[in-house]
Amino acid sequence: MIKLIAIDLDGTLLNDKKEVTPRNKEVLARAKAQGVKIVICTGRPLRAIRPYLEELSLKEPGDYSITFNGGLVQKNETGEIIEKAAMQLADIHELVSVAEDLNLPLDVVSEEIVLSLPTSAAHPSIYGSLNPLLDCRPFAVADLDESMLYNKAVIAYHQEVLDPKIPEISSEIREKYEIIKSRNNLLEFMPKGITKAYGISLLAQDLGIKQEEVMAIGDEENDLPMIRYAGIGVAMANAVPIIKEAADVVTVSNQEDGVAAVIEEYVLKGGA
């Protein structure tokens, strides 16, 4: 019996217009009414998903989100952090050097503020344009200090420039950080071991929910750990190949209410 459904946003719950469709909204409401925890699981900060939480009536006591790709587990009603994993200042300085060597922009998310660092004059960051709800501010590397919370770092730039640069990242850096594409133009860096599956496992433990009682639905590389972790891992029809290969179930696309379809089949109808 599924008791928690972890759902990615872009390419999964949201259609290509970044909308929650009426059918997805209705099915999620039915599942929640049956006592199933509906948990948005995203690389974004809470600030950037609040409109969706309000639209889905997921800002009540007992509603949770997993943000920063598993770095934070938060109460939706208050924003209170119940589980946290973050980077150190030394990590950020190391990633600044990586971005400078690649001649690509580096943004660091610090709580709900995005610090845009001057690592590439030729290639300015497009992170703010990917989500208008982000509060992006130019920031000097010299002004970074130990007192700040560093949730994750990202390189946001056009795919045709970004993709050829990724193989240049050294094996030492790859071994030290989780480095995952969450969109075709967004490369994310997290502390090693911090993934969406990590965040889900902490929340499930807090709620007394077993691993086999979790469903996870996603489409991109950063969803892979939670797809593998969940009792039922679900790939969207529009998912990248590695997600489809790892999934237990492939539902229809985000343009065809794939989230609603799989929840109706495996949760509301009691399928297995």
Score class of each variant (00 low, 15 high):
Arg228Met: 13
Glu94Gly: 12
Gly128Thr: 04
Leu187Tyr: 05
Lys165Val: 00
Ala197Cys: 10
Gly270Leu: 09
Glu175Asp: 15
Asn76Thr: 06
Leu187His: 05
Arg44Glu: 12
Lys192Trp: 08
Leu9Arg: 05
Ile263Trp: 08
Ala230Cys: 10
Leu144Ser: 13
Asp145Tyr: 06
Lys165Asp: 00
Met226Ser: 02
Ser182His: 06
Glu265Ile: 06
Ile242Asp: 11
Thr42Glu: 03
Pro241Thr: 05
Tyr157Asn: 09
Ile155Asn: 00
Leu53His: 01
Ser201Ala: 14
Leu133Trp: 12
Val141Trp: 12
Ile200Gly: 01
Thr12Val: 05
Ile263Gln: 04
Tyr64Asn: 04
Pro61Ile: 00
Asn185Gln: 14
Val214Leu: 07
Val20Cys: 02
Arg30Asp: 14
Ala235Val: 01
Phe189Gln: 00
Val36Ile: 15
Gly43Val: 07
Gly258Asp: 03
Val36Leu: 07
Ile180His: 08
Leu58Thr: 02
Met1Asn: 13
Ala156Pro: 02
Thr21Ala: 10
Pro61Ser: 10
Ile169Lys: 09
Lys196Ile: 12
Asp143Leu: 14
Leu115Trp: 01
Gln88Pro: 10
Ala85Gln: 15
Ile2Pro: 00
Lys59Phe: 09
Lys165Thr: 03
Gly208Gln: 09
Glu188Pro: 08
Cys41Tyr: 06
Val154Cys: 11
Pro51Arg: 02
Ala261Thr: 14
Cys41Gln: 02
Tyr198Glu: 09
Lys192His: 12
Gly258Ser: 10
Glu212Leu: 11
Glu264Ser: 04
Val252Arg: 10
Ser125Tyr: 05
Arg50Tyr: 13
Ile81Gln: 00
Ala142Trp: 08
Ser116Trp: 04
Asn185His: 13
Leu89Arg: 13
Ser116Glu: 12
Arg44Ser: 07
Leu106Phe: 09
Val73Arg: 07
Ala247Thr: 02
